[in-house]
Simulated assay, not measured.
Amino acid sequence: MTTGAPPARTALVTGASRGIGRATALALSRRGDRVAVHYGSDRAAAEQTRALLSGAGHLVVGGDLADPVTAQRVVAEVQRELGRIDILVNNAAVAPSPETYHRVENTDFETWQRVWNRMVDVDLTAPATMTYLVARALIAANAPGVIVNIGSRGAFRGEPDHPAYGAAKAGLHAFGQSMAVALAPHGIAVATVAPGFVGTERQQPKLAGDTGDELRAQSPFGRVGTAEEVAAAVVYLTSPEAQWASGAILDLNGASHLRT
């Protein structure tokens, strides 16, 4: 008696319209997973991601996951269209940018409050909501699964120009470890990747400008990371062989910041 290949798994990747999310969606599809490509506001970019995926049966789904009603709709839509969610990659985030700059000595109170609320809502509360929804569905189905959070080096070294980002990512790291303990009895693994600076399309102006050499010099390798390197880490952490890595926070920063 021969056994066939294991059935394809379904992965929901949030914030997959570009950058790390797109690279992750592509890598998971190349492994044979069906992928739900989530986007916040740019459906056209998400459709471009789907067009690049290997295989068939993929889905595009959109919405602001900071809204719990929208998060419930997104999860329900993926479950309805693809049957289940075996893998959740919490990647969607409000990233540091000139628009989210809020260094304490240079920022008025109204801006401080607005940026803090938005970053915590999207970068911490939304992944917690998505984790809850997907984990509850897996538990109800008595099915194994895996959740990977995309954290940040900034949670460890500090983000003085974007303190809400550093705080939200630190919270995400801690949340992931709490869920690793809580969900292990249900066969659900939870891990986190903490990248350093990644040279996505959005970051190319920084790399091409006056700050480029400084950014590359942060790592002794003399370069910045790539979205594909982060995606490769997610592929490993979502593999059945990586269940024993549950609870881990994987530093992926080219030795630019070493934790003790």
Rank of each mutant, 00 (worst) to 15 (best):
Q218M: 09
R22C: 11
N149S: 07
A11H: 06
A164I: 09
L26M: 15
A92M: 01
A167L: 14
H162T: 13
A92H: 00
G196F: 10
A231D: 14
H173E: 11
H58I: 04
D121T: 03
V35T: 02
Q204H: 10
D210V: 13
A217R: 04
Q243C: 08
S17E: 14
E201F: 06
G158F: 02
P185W: 05
I150E: 00
A184V: 05
Y39W: 13
V181C: 07
A233W: 06
A11I: 05
R31N: 08
S239F: 10
P127H: 01
A56Y: 00
G83K: 00
T226K: 14
T129C: 10
T111A: 15
A128N: 09
T49E: 12
T192G: 12
A128S: 14
A174P: 03
L12C: 03
G151V: 02
A93Q: 07
A232S: 15
E47R: 12
G32S: 11
A16F: 03
E81K: 01
A56F: 00
T211N: 12
Y165F: 15
E81D: 03
T100I: 04
D42K: 05
A164M: 11
A217W: 02
L59Y: 02
T129M: 09
R80V: 03
F175W: 04
A51V: 12
A23Y: 06
G21W: 09
G19V: 10
R103T: 03
S17A: 15
M179D: 01
D251F: 11
P163I: 04
P96D: 00
A248S: 15
